[in-house]
Simulated assay, not measured.
Amino acid sequence: MKTLILTNRVPFPPNSGYPIVVYNTIKGLLRLGVDITLFSINTNKHRVDTDDIYDPVFENINFHSFNLDTEVNVWGALFNIFSNESYNVSRYFDDDAAKLLEDILKEKQFDVIQFEGLFVVPYLDIVKANSSAKIIYRAHNIEFDVWERIAITERFTPRRKYLQFLARRLKIYETEQINRFHQVFAISEQDRHAILRFGCEVGIEVFPVALDFERYVINTAKPSFPTLFHIGSMDWRPNKEGLEWFLDEIWPDIEKLNSELRFYIAGKNMQREFFEYDSDNLVVEGEVFDAVEFINSKSIMIVPLLSGSGMRVKIIEGMAMKKCVIATSMAAEGIRCEPGKDIMIADTADEFYRSILQCITNPNKWHEIGENARKTVERDHDISTISERMLNIYQKLVSA
C-alpha cells in the first residue's frame, strides 16, 4: 500500500497536537507495512531544520518539504478582502510548492493520498490532475467553528467583525471542499456529526488521536502534591485566552487554599505577560524539553479552554499519564469521558474552585480519576487498533 500524506507543518518532533496526531498515524501505518511518503509545508512559524531530524520513524519514510512563509501581513489581509478566497487557507499555497508536489506525483504512483487538515487542501487540484489515487481528507477540527468561537469572545468591535468575516470565508471554503474527496476522517464523533450537517455525502469515519502507550510510562514516585499544571502552545489563541481567564478569575482564590500549592504552566511561545503575573505560587516554565516528563512530575491538570474545536491531544496525554484532568466542557469536547469518573468538568470559576478544592482535600479522588482516565484512553486511543482500522479503509477504497 503506497500512501502519500500531506501536512501543513513538519510533524517532527511530535511536540504538540497536530504533529502528535500525524506522527502517530505514520508510526502506526509503518508498523503495518505501509509505504509512506510525506510532503510537508515547512512554515516560518513552526520551522524545522530537517537535517537535524533523528527519528526512526523519519528514517523509514520518503520525505519532502517546502519552506513557506505563511505569516499574516497587513497588505495580504487587505487585498484578500477583495477576493473570493479564504485568507486563512490561501496563505499555504505556493506555485513552487505545487510544482514540487506535481513532480512527486509523476515520479511515483500512490494508492492513497491523505490530506491532514484543511490548510493543505489548496493542493487538491494538483493531486487530482496528476494522480488516480483514492483521496482522503482528515479533519483535525472544524476550522471555521474555531474562528467563530474566537470571534464571539473578541471584545474589540473592529477585530471581532474581521474575525467573523474570516470565519464566514473559511466556512464557505470548508463546506465546498468536503465532497471532493473519496473519504473523510473526523477526529471525534461530535466533529463527524458537524461535518454531516454541512452536507458531507462521502463516507466518513471517526479516527481519534492515537497514542503509543510505550511512551507513556508513569513513575509514581515523581509527582509532587499539591501541584496544578497547564501545558499548551501559547501561540494558539484559545490556549492563551483560557489561561488568562483562569489566572484572572480563578487562581487568586485558589492559591489561598494552601500556601504550598503551586501552579506550573508550560508551553511554546509563552507570552511575556505570564512571566510578569503577580503570584508567588505561579511557576512559568515556558517550553519544556520533555512534555511527558513534565506531565508525570505534576498532579492535577488544568485545561480552561473557552473556544476551540477538535480534540485536545494534551488532555489525552494527561489521561494516559493517570492525571486528574479538570477541564471545561469545551476542552473535553470529542473525548469519550465520564465527568466525575475519568475527568472533572468545570465551566465556571466556582466549579473550578470546588473541583480543585475537592482534589486537594481528598487526594484519593484525583488518584481514582487518574486510574480510570488511563483505562479510558487505552480503550479508545490505542495506536495499533486505530492504525489497523485505517488500513482496512485504505484497502476497501483501493479495491472498490
Rank of each mutant, 00 (worst) to 15 (best):
T157I: 11
V146E: 01
Y394Q: 12
L305H: 03
I315G: 02
G17R: 05
I300V: 12
F82T: 04
I187A: 09
I172M: 05
N372V: 02
W251C: 05
S297P: 02
P19S: 05
N60V: 11
N258G: 00
L78A: 13
V57N: 04
G310Y: 01
A98Q: 08
R149E: 15
R374Q: 12
R379T: 08
Y173W: 08
Y92W: 14
D382T: 09
A221Y: 05
S299W: 15
K341A: 04
F119R: 12
V22C: 12
L118W: 02
N141I: 01
P13I: 09
D342T: 10
T348K: 12
S131L: 03
F79A: 04
V127G: 03
G267L: 01
S297W: 01
I26E: 02
L243V: 15
N84Y: 02
V325S: 09
V206S: 12
E287M: 13
V121Y: 00
F352L: 08
V325M: 14
V120S: 02
I345W: 09
L30E: 10
P56F: 01
R312F: 08
E71A: 08
Y18T: 13
I26A: 02
S355V: 00
S309D: 06
S131E: 06
A221K: 15
E255C: 09
N62K: 15
N392M: 13
L391F: 07
D278K: 14
D235M: 00
V10P: 05
D248M: 12
A327Q: 06
I345L: 13
T153W: 13
P208C: 02
E174S: 13
